[in-house]
């Protein structure tokens, strides 16, 4: 029989990683189109607050999640307008978004601190949930976790197997050639930026609606930045982002559970585990990428001026 401690850590890894996964998966799509969005922290906060606000008004977590998708998408639109229409510095625009999202969410969130909401509860999937070990780790969660099991392969399919995916990758690699080939660069980038931010909004709503089940100002506590880092680590691939998100979630879950069972390791050392793991894996990933050259989209972060 599998050790219940390990099962608990790994199930916690999936749960803890899911919010970051939504945001990182969205950012993969955005960055693949050549737009870097550093504002995920602010977008997740806006998603978290719109999710909880609408869920508490309507009583439906589904509508809450949809609102977070829209709210995140709206901030994505701001980023898209700044960086595509006005060709602004994308780094600066992302930082503005972080501040903007933090401020907006704090302002609108005041009324929702301590609000009780209906949330999704864990639903065991019949048959799959009964598989020993794997079942408890992956198939005894809430619906938003299951959502990622469908979303991530879909995003990979979208990127690598569809015309739209090809267009996204093309405008991220070489917008001039893509444009010459008849792809409307800004349209594709608008889509990728808004869609990516909308997913980050869902990630934020996962935190407020499902995970912590409540809103507190700045509750993302750096997870947006982690998501941006994960995209690099994942080599701009949705499936690897999933692995990375679970790695981050797992490190956090392990840290907290090691403490809960009373391991005598400094909590500060344990607290560093998630970040250390990411740095280590990221370093290995970068070295490997140098060898096989599957690195960042070539046009990432560069404004595209069609009239030059």
């Amino acid at each position: 029989m599998a050790d219940p401690f390990i099962v608990a850590v790994l199930a916690g890894a999936v749960r803890s990683g899911t919010a970051v996964l939504y945001a990182a998966a969205g950012e993969v799509i955005t960055e693949r189109s050549g737009i870097i969005n550093l504002g995920l922290e602010g977008i997740m906060l806006v998603g978290a607050v719109s999710g909880i606000a609408i869920a508490s008004i309507t009583g439906s977590p589904f509508i809450g999640i949809s609102a977070a998708f829209v709210g995140g998408g709206l901030l994505g639109l701001v980023h898209a307008i700044l960086s595509i229409r006005f060709q602004a510095n994308q780094i600066a625009s992302g930082i503005v978004l972080t501040i903007l999202g933090g401020g907006l969410s704090a302002f609108f969130g005041i009324a929702y601190v301590g609000k009780q909401i209906n949330s999704f509860s864990a639903v065991k999937i019949p048959f799959l949930g009964d598989i020993p070990f794997i079942g408890s780790i992956f198939f005894n969660h809430d619906i938003m976790v299951y959502g990622t099991y469908i979303l991530i392969p879909l995003l990979a399919f979208l990127l690598y197997k569809t015309k739209l995916g090809l267009a996204i990758r093309a405008v991220g690699e070489d917008p001039d050639s893509a444009s010459a080939a008849g792809i409307r660069v800004s349209h594709v980038r608008y889509f990728a930026t808004i869609f990516g931010a909308a997913l980050a909004g869902m990630g934020g709503a996962y935190l407020s609606l499902v995970y912590a089940q409540g809103w507190i100002e700045n509750m993302t506590a750096g997870r947006g930045l982690i998501a941006v880092g994960l995209v690099l680590f994942a080599g701009w691939d949705p499936l690897k982002a999933m692995f990375g998100a679970y790695l981050f979630g797992g490190a956090q879950s392990l840290e907290l559970r090691l403490q809960a069972i009373g391991t005598d390791i400094s909590p500060y050392i344990l607290g560093m585990i998630p970040y250390l793991l990411i740095i280590i894996v990221f370093t290995i990933g970068t070295i490997r990428q140098r060898k096989v050259n599957t690195g960042s989209p070539t046009a990432l972060g560069l404004p595209y001026n069609p009239n030059k």
């Binding site: 219940p4 608990a8 916690g12 749960r15 803890s16 919010a19 935190l207 995970y211 912590a212 089940q213 409540g214 507190i216 700045n218 509750m219 993302t220 506590a221 997870r223 956090q252 879950s253 907290l256 559970r257 403490q259 809960a260 069972i261 009373g262 909590p267 500060y268 607290g271």
Partner: peptide, 27 residues
């Protein structure tokens, strides 16, 4: 009394996970 440190005055998601971890271990 099982103490779990979150190393932050405010990190609600981490607090929720810590709570689940403690509940799992029988608190």
């Amino acid at each position: 009394v099982h103490v779990v440190w979150t190393n932050s005055w405010s990190d609600p998601p981490k607090e929720a996970e810590a709570a689940k971890g403690l509940i799992d271990t029988g608190c």
